[in-house]
Design a protein around this nucleic acid. Structure first.
Lengths: 194, 194
DNA sequence: GTCTATAAGATGATAGAC
DNA sequence: GTCTATCATCTTATAGAC
């Protein structure tokens, strides 16, 4: 059977993700989803009873996919510099796809209006990213391929903040190159030979 | 006479600014303003016929105030490092006040849903900030107090993006210290003696 | 699982009295 | 310049038929 049930829920998540990433959590409605998927409002509520629950599912999905990408980078690469480059590309790929913002970066902007569970999900995402970056930065300095002052943890925050901000600003210009030049500079400054 | 007319328009702008900075352009309504200022919906429309016009007035006001702050920094300081520190403090002060996001950073997140004139206003703000930063970075390197690779223009983009992103992420934690540690690291890395 | 129908309230906006 | 009254539309959400 051609996956009968979960299919619609998946299509809803897929579209809702794009909508949050481009318009924000308060910038789209169930009606937007219904019309684009040619289903009814009530069908969405069947799968996701409230918008808060939809938001939470969206974060968990996004975080899970991101986690897999980080694990994949870890599995297939040894060099910290290479890992950071691939990490930045993760962001670039999001931006290249319909000028999307990072899901959690977008939700961070909506922070004040979000249900508590969604807020917490955003924090978890940032925490996980910072932990991964901290680890990679530590490894790189240890191996002598990366050079930076201060703690890996603080520099992880710098990288996370800067990449999120670079996406945010680049979207206003619709220029991915803006993101890329910032990311490139950020990574070049970590180069051991600098 | 105790400024009869402009007073209400000013109070509306003041509150709307906070609302946009904390909830986003799509996260507040005329009703929110009306109830908090104890006036009626129609009174707001008298001063600002459409939300788009309110948004534009908000940006112009914010940009103007920011411009004044930059001019003030230029007037009273010679050292580029000092100027950058004061620049970062401008951002920190916004964040400290009710966990606000930069008005234009917030509007950048709403980019996809904004009226064209508002979008353009956001770009103008970023352009102006980048130009100022580019100038200061150039001066600092010339004077030998700042050290960085690449062009002042690219580094200006790095600083703008990073500070905007640092605000965005810090808001999710409600910790100004998160912003401050990132800003501090960013500026320390530009130090000539690094 | 999807639909029709509908509720109950919010939204941006306007006409016209005071 | 502010008000009351009102609009058309959109919003999240639910009840119940199919």
């Amino acid at each position: 059977m051609p996956r009968p049930s979960t299919d619609t829920a998946e299509r809803i998540l897929e579209l809702a993700e794009t909508l949050v990433q481009t318009q924000g959590f308060n910038g789209f409605s169930y009606a937007d989803i219904a019309s684009k998927l040619r289903i009814r409002n009530a069908s969405i509520h069947y799968h996701f009873p409230s918008k808060a629950q939809l938001g939470l599912r969206l974060i968990r999905r996004y975080h899970g996919n991101f986690r897999e990408a980080l694990d994949s980078i870890d599995r297939t690469n040894a060099d910290a510099r290479r890992k950071l480059k691939l990490y930045a590309q993760l962001y670039a790929n999001v931006l290249k796809d319909k000028n999307r913002m990072c899901l959690c970066g977008m939700l961070a902007s909506d922070h004040h209006t979000l249900p508590k569970p969604v807020r917490d999900g955003v924090k978890d995402f940032f925490d996980d990213n910072e932990a991964w970056l901290t680890k990679v930065l530590g490894e790189g300095r240890e191996a002598g391929t990366l050079r930076f002052d201060g703690s890996p943890a603080v520099h992880a925050r710098v990288l996370l903040s800067s990449l999120e901000g670079a996406m945010l600003v680049a979207r206003s210009y619709g220029e991915v190159s803006r993101f890329e030049s910032v990311a490139q500079r950020l990574l070049a400054d970590l180069d051991a030979k600098a």
